[in-house]
């Protein structure tokens, strides 16, 4: 026996092992860190992206790019909140801009018509916007699948019509100008960056809680949820409201930053953009839509010099990605991350 052990020691076979296998014990969240390599493997993907986001204004000092990143953050928050509905609950909404528009308009009406200060108009406008959007979408919850998508598609279009009809309150085609904007571009950048991180943390917490489990169950199998003694409509309405809060907040911030709201807040292109980013980044992952939002927004800005060709290239890139990585960028990254290997010396 002893001699065999001795000889084995001399051979020293080298075996490859997946990095996450060695570092990760059976449980999903328990790590056994053995080296700096392991520590970096676990921590870097979690710490680096937020650090880059927070340090970005010091790396790139061009205000133009700060504005681009604000816009990307705007889409990131909106599409992460869409993911709670479309990805987790199965309510594929084509009218998420309804929340953004309501948030913006309520904030503008409060701030401009009633003189409510910015620190009050944003929270009140957000709450009112989310509540109003939920109120409009709630009756549509009786429909399912494609039918819900179709009904949700129409809602913002109807709102655009109503805005033009009630021009005395809403400003009609011109919208409402002159919202209070006391902050600099850099401050807006940090508000949005913080909001992106916060939204991600909150929504991920919600999505992976028991509440999120029920939402996923509703998406996959509603009868089974009903016989489990759970009222699916109540859960769906709650999901709508939570999702609406974030989208509405984004609209509200945008209104103050631009000092302007108009019917464009409700435009279909925003809703479609949100869905495109979510699908590109990976549906039902929360972080995926944010990745998609940053990639697509930055890409759109980069390709600005192409003019009209930009949209063509944009479409081609999307088609290629959706054809070859239909599960979304995040899932692809996740799988790649898990295949990192290290060499283990067997003694």
């Amino acid at each position: 026996m002893k001699s065999r052990k001795e000889s084995n020691k001399n051979i020293r076979t080298i075996r490859k092992e997946r990095l996450d296998r060695g570092a990760r014990a059976r449980s999903k969240d328990l790590y056994v860190l053995m080296s700096y390599e392991d520590i970096a493997y676990v921590i870097l993907p979690r710490v680096l992206p937020p650090l880059i986001l927070l340090a970005f204004p010091f790396i790139v000092r061009d205000t133009y790019w700060h504005m681009v990143f604000f816009l990307a953050g705007y889409y990131a928050v909106a599409s992460m909140s869409w993911d709670l509905l479309g990805g987790f609950t199965g309510l594929v909404s084509f009218g998420h801009s309804l929340f953004i528009g309501f948030g913006g308009y309520f904030t503008a009406i409060l701030n401009v018509w009633y003189g409510v200060p910015i620190w009050l108009s944003i929270p009140i406008g957000t709450l009112a916007g989310a509540a109003m959007g939920t109120l409009i979408f709630a009756p549509c919850l009786r429909t399912k699948g494609v039918y819900f998508s179709l009904v949700s598609l129409v809602a913002p279009l109807v709102m655009v019509g109503s805005i033009l009809a009630f021009a005395e309150i809403t400003g009609g085609e011109e919208g409402i100008y002159g919202l209070e904007n006391p902050l600099t571009e850099l401050q807006w950048y940090y508000i949005m960056a913080g909001l992106v991180l916060l939204t991600f943390l909150i929504l991920r917490k919600i999505a992976y809680s028991n509440f999120g489990l029920v939402l996923q169950a509703i998406r996959d199998n509603e009868p089974s949820v009903k016989v489990s003694g759970i009222n699916p409509v109540r859960y769906k309405v709650t999901a709508l409201f939570i999702s609406g809060l974030f989208a509405s907040l984004v609209g509200s911030l945008q209104a103050h930053k631009l000092s302007f709201v108009g019917p464009s807040y409700f435009y279909l292109s925003i809703s479609v953009g949100i869905i495109t980013m979510s699908v590109l980044g990976g549906v039902a992952t929360i972080i995926g839509p944010a990745i998609g939002a940053y990639i697509l927004t930055i890409l759109t800005e980069w390709l600005r010099w192409l003019g009209g060709l930009r949209m063509l290239l944009y479409g081609v890139i999307l088609l290629i990605l959706l054809n070859f990585k239909p599960e979304g960028i995040y899932r692809y990254l996740e799988r790649t991350y898990q295949t990192f290997e290290r060499q283990v010396v067997e003694e």
Binding site: A217, P223, S228, I230
Partner: peptide, 19 residues
């Protein structure tokens, strides 16, 4: 009719959160 994409244990959690 399980909830296909959820892990088996999570399937059982759904009724456990009912009122």
């Amino acid at each position: 009719r399980p909830i296909h994409r959820l892990r088996t244990v999570f399937n059982i959690i759904v009724p456990l959160v009912s009122p």
